[in-house]
């Protein structure tokens, strides 16, 4: 009975929203705010704008319907989104990587060499052809016999990635270490003109920072046993620090996600149903 009542409630709500949307659609032609929006978006006609809005609104509702349960409406839009995203990323890679960063520079350099003769810059650009060849080796994944060839490309990618990461890690590490040196008892010499209370606050702040860094670092020791009382107690403090930080992250991110939800609800009410200010 309860399930049936729930179903009826949602059906009535759905019918009401649809009725509101259709009513809004009839009003849209005479609304100055809608005309202004079409102009803002530089769209060819009101029809195109309304079609866009309907598709966006239905997609939105379809995705939210997942909160209820997995359903064919959600499934359709899920597959449409997956298809669109994959197609779009293919087009982006073709256009922004293969075409503009690989094909065009090579073509330009070949023309330059043919017209003006050899230059080291042009030769370096033409060498990009080898990058394309290495990239093509990935397609040997489809061959059972020559599968091993694809591992060459794999190894080159991994080697380059590891080398770059190695350099970056150390470049980032040093400033982080020096940034952790904190004065836990600042004197007049380092804080001229500051009151004793201000210096005390600064000292406490710095002490909390240093203790936090050290204890969290100790929490992530894996090979040293936890039997050592210093390691054991520091790990516990480290865990507290981590939990406080994670709680702060959670609250902060939750607020930003709530803003995203408000933006979507506003879109549905203002642009689709046309019942609030745009």
């Amino acid at each position: 009975m309860q399930k049936f009542t729930g179903k009826v409630f949602w059906m009535i709500l759905g019918a009401l929203v649809l009725a509101l949307a259709i009513f809004g659609e009839f009003r849209s032609g005479s609304m100055p705010s809608v005309a202004a929006r079409v102009k803002d978006l530089d769209l060819p006609s009101l029809g195109v704008y309304r079609l866009q809005t309907w598709v966006a609104a239905l997609s939105c509702i379809a995705v939210y319907s997942f909160l209820f349960k997995e359903n064919p409406f959600y499934r359709f839009f899920e597959h449409a989104l997956l298809g669109c995203a994959t197609g779009y990323s293919c087009a982006v890679v073709m256009r922004q990587n293969l075409y503009s960063q690989w094909l065009v520079p090579i073509k330009k350099s070949v023309m330059n060499v043919m017209a003006n003769g050899y230059t080291p810059e042009d030769a370096a650009t033409i060498a990009l052809i080898f990058a394309g060849v290495i990239g093509l080796l990935w397609y040997f994944q489809y061959s059972k016999k020559y599968f091993w060839v694809s591992r060459i490309a794999m190894c080159i990618s991994l080697g380059a990635g590891a080398g770059l990461a190695f350099k970056d890690t150390f470049n980032q590490l040093i400033p982080q270490i020096t940034g952790t040196f904190k004065n836990v008892c600042p004197t007049e010499y380092v804080m001229p003109g500051a009151s004793l209370l201000d210096r005390f606050y600064m000292g406490c702040e710095n002490a909390i920072f240093v203790i936090g860094t050290v204890s969290v670092l100790m929490y992530f020791f894996f090979a040293f046993g936890n039997k050592n009382p210093i390691v054991k107690s520091s790990s516990k403090i480290g865990r507290w620090y981590l939990m406080i930080a994670l709680g702060a992250f959670f609250g902060n991110t939750f607020m930003s996600r709530l803003s995203a939800l408000i933006e979507r609800v506003h879109f549905l009410m203002a642009e689709w149903l046309l019942i609030s200010q745009m």
Partner: peptide, 9 residues
């Protein structure tokens, strides 16, 4: 998909 929303959905 490498698009986060599509991947999640």
């Amino acid at each position: 998909s490498s698009n986060q929303s599509a991947l999640g959905a």
